[in-house]
């Protein structure tokens, strides 16, 4: 179901359209520069970054794929991010449901806890967290599942805020009607509320996937096995103590952004659909 605001093509349509095109140009431009840069060497990038490559160096892509093994890191990151995103969506939407559609006394405190958790910069809690994790033998280093737990925890607050904001807008009569029909809470949640909330779920899925895919500090600390490197660690391959291999790095960046773009486009479509007419409080 295509859901868009049908507006007469008045002034606002054209003004907004002009802005749309300008913004598209200034967001696309850097991506094009990245493509150019992936075909240059250091001296050309530093000397004239914004120009067309004078003599395209396709070898940069060979270095990125063959030497830096960027494809394997991409696969690792995609795997890690997909699983983390699924876990985050499940836990996050369940909590969002309770916080937005019930009036328990503890809701306020639960919300407070999640709020406190997103304010602190990562470097403040890094050492205590690593200490905690190192004490628990189940959470070994070089394991993706430790990372997944951490990623889920990190992504939860944002997802809870977005999903509960959306769920607040869904008419509460829906719940009551479902209960009268004999639905229990899981049935109500999974069969009725979740399908309606697809736009919010898709939004937080994109955000969570993005955050996990680009996360670096924890991946750096947990993963020492080369075959398990994630994309952000893989990109460090090109950055030396006092020198950087820019060309191959940009080639790797181009390759690394593709899965993210595909994921985005897939879920972006989901933001448009969902909402059942009449189920929203008006």
């Amino acid at each position: 179901m295509e859901k868009s605001l049908k507006v007469r093509k008045g002034m606002s349509y054209w003004v907004l359209g002009l802005f749309a095109i300008i913004w598209a140009v200034i967001t696309l431009y850097p991506f094009i520069i990245t493509i150019f840069s992936s075909l240059k060497n250091n001296d050309e990038i530093f000397g004239s970054m914004l120009k067309l490559p004078s003599d395209p160096i396709w070898h940069n892509y060979y270095i990125a794929i063959h030497d830096a093994k960027i494809l394997r890191t991409i696969m690792n990151s995609v795997f890690l991010s997909v699983i983390s995103t699924i876990g985050m969506l499940l836990f996050g939407s369940m909590i969002a449901y309770v916080l937005s559609r019930t009036k328990h006394v503890y809701n306020k405190y639960v919300l407070g806890i999640f709020l406190a958790g997103i304010v602190l910069p990562i470097y403040a809690t890094l050492v205590p967290l690593m200490k905690l994790v190192s004490k628990i033998s189940f959470l070994r280093p070089n394991s993706f599942y430790t990372l997944m737990f951490i990623y889920i925890a990190i992504c939860l607050p944002e997802a809870i805020f977005i999903i509960s904001g959306y769920m607040k807008g869904i008419s509460k009569e829906l719940d009551e009607a479902a209960i009268i029909d004999g639905c229990n809470t899981p049935q109500l949640f999974f069969k009725i509320l979740l399908p309606i909330s697809v736009p919010a779920l898709a939004t937080s899925a994109i955000i969570a996937f993005l955050n996990c895919y680009n996360e670096m500090v924890f991946a750096l600390l947990f993963i020492t096995e080369k075959t398990m490197y994630t994309v952000s660690i893989g990109l460090l391959y090109f950055v030396g103590k006092k020198t950087v291999d820019m060309g191959p790095m940009f080639a790797a960046i181009i390759l690394a952004t593709l899965p993210m773009l595909i994921f985005y486009m897939f879920f972006q479509e989901r933001i448009q659909s969902g909402m059942v007419a009449g189920s929203v409080k008006g």
Partner: peptide, 13 residues
């Protein structure tokens, strides 16, 4: 979700 969050974020905090 809460247990996970408390364990990995709140305790270190």
């Amino acid at each position: 979700g809460l247990v996970l969050f408390v364990f990995f974020i709140i305790i270190p905090l």
